[in-house]
Design a protein around this nucleic acid. Structure first.
Lengths: 233, 233
DNA sequence: TTGTAAGACTTACAACGTAAGGGCGGCTGC
DNA sequence: GCAGCCGCCCTTACGTTGTAAGTCTTACAA
């Protein structure tokens, strides 16, 4: 007889840091980041909670690792984009990379929030920024301007902006526009704007606004501004 | 004898939602947001944890309330700034308001993170955005452009950007530049940039970068871009 | 066969948010 | 004056979380 406890049981894949992190992403993908607990993560792996601690230091380490895995995924995607022969095309190249990074993050909606809470910056994230910086340098940026550029882009460089009004955040039961209508006296301009936008575009892609279009608007605003400064310098 | 339990004890100020929220801000100010627990909050008020639930629904409600109080504080500050007689000065007015909002948030470093997690938008925050919108409208913005503008500004409109590399986030024991030096091979551009910046400006205000200057750079980049679009339209 | 060490499991604890209910003091109606 | 009520606070207790400490199991080397 083989050394299995159960004859019919699967051979039990051993745990590993890699496997733990991938499972963590999978749990968060299906149940949101708040559903990611050490016990549930272990259950997902067919193990007990404390067994995970042999492969990760603690929960913070799991979150650090998750960010690193996702940033690596982003790098794999953007590294397939070929860099322009002419450095002057920096804007197109940077734009393309950022929008590709965004596509990856859209598959993990909970991830931006985790990225923002990390204080230990992952090497994969640094690699991403380094490549972006390389494109800017090739496009004629001084280090000083490139430095400003990274700050100006902020988290947008990785493909996300925090939406302050998240129309999908609520339970969806209450129409936000209805709530606004009754306080038109206090918020005249907001109510005016929303009523016009709703009128022009009865069903935009997601709730109030088309997130993708707004993201690109802000991104292009910044990239164009940087380009003008670059030319002037 | 009076109806006090203790003759020498202070008369015991009754709890109230207002008092609970102010105490919550005070606790977070002194110990960080992760130190804000219902028990500690109660202790800070000389009460028991469960007593708070008579004045707030739950902890989420506390956080919602805290955001509202801080946004109200911001409104009080920015409402003292007089609006320009000439609408064309929209940019100066908007800029001034945003930088004032930032000053308030700098007194509550933990607050941006809380603002971002809120899904129920506070009325005070909406009032802030409404006033900003009013300035843009007076400056000649269409509702459509103003709408884009709010998205492009994002949380910057309230005075903060999420710093992806927070030099103060670590324990300060390890110099981040030292860690970077050894991976110069992997991050050539970042290392190049940092070494030049450190060389030019040996001790900038806070760690690597002057946060305030970077914030204003990004803000002006966006405001200038918006102004150009406004003129073109 | 036996020692060893990596890797998984069991048990246990402190801290958290909060549900349920008890009691006290001051007000209102008689 | 006093009975009843109700607003406000407290006590107790439960389920969930992260994780410290110790134990068992398994695979392999000697």
């Amino acid at each position: 007889m083989a050394s299995q406890t159960e004859p019919g049981a699967e051979p039990r894949i051993p745990l590993s840091r890699e496997r733990v992190l991938r499972a963590a992403i999978s749990v968060a993908d299906s149940g949101g980041i708040e559903s990611l607990t050490m016990r549930r993560l272990a259950e997902h792996l067919g193990a007990e909670a404390m067994s995970l601690y042999y492969h990760v230091a603690n929960k913070e380490d799991v979150l650090d690792g998750v960010v690193d895995v996702i940033a690596t995924e982003i790098n794999e995607v953007v590294d397939r984009i070929d860099v322009p022969a002419d450095g002057a095309d920096w804007k197109k190249a940077v734009r393309q990379r950022i929008l590709s990074a965004r596509e990856v993050l859209l598959r993990h909606r909970w991830a931006p929030g985790v990225f923002e809470t990390r204080t230990n910056t992952s090497l994969a994230v640094l690699r991403y920024y380094d490549a972006l910086l390389g494109l800017m340098r090739a496009g004629g940026f001084s280090y000083d301007l490139a430095h400003h550029a990274l700050h100006a882009l902020g988290s947008r460089a990785l493909g996300f902006t925090q939406e302050l009004f998240d129309p999908n955040g609520g339970d969806g039961a209450t129409d936000p526009a209805a709530g606004l209508a009754e306080m038109a006296g206090q918020l005249p301009h907001l109510v005016g704007m929303l009523s016009e936008i709703v009128h022009d575009d009865p069903d935009s892609t997601l709730g109030w606004c088309d997130d993708q279009a707004e993201f690109e608007f802000g991104l292009d605003l910044i990239l164009d501004g940087l380009d003008r400064i670059r030319e002037g310098a």
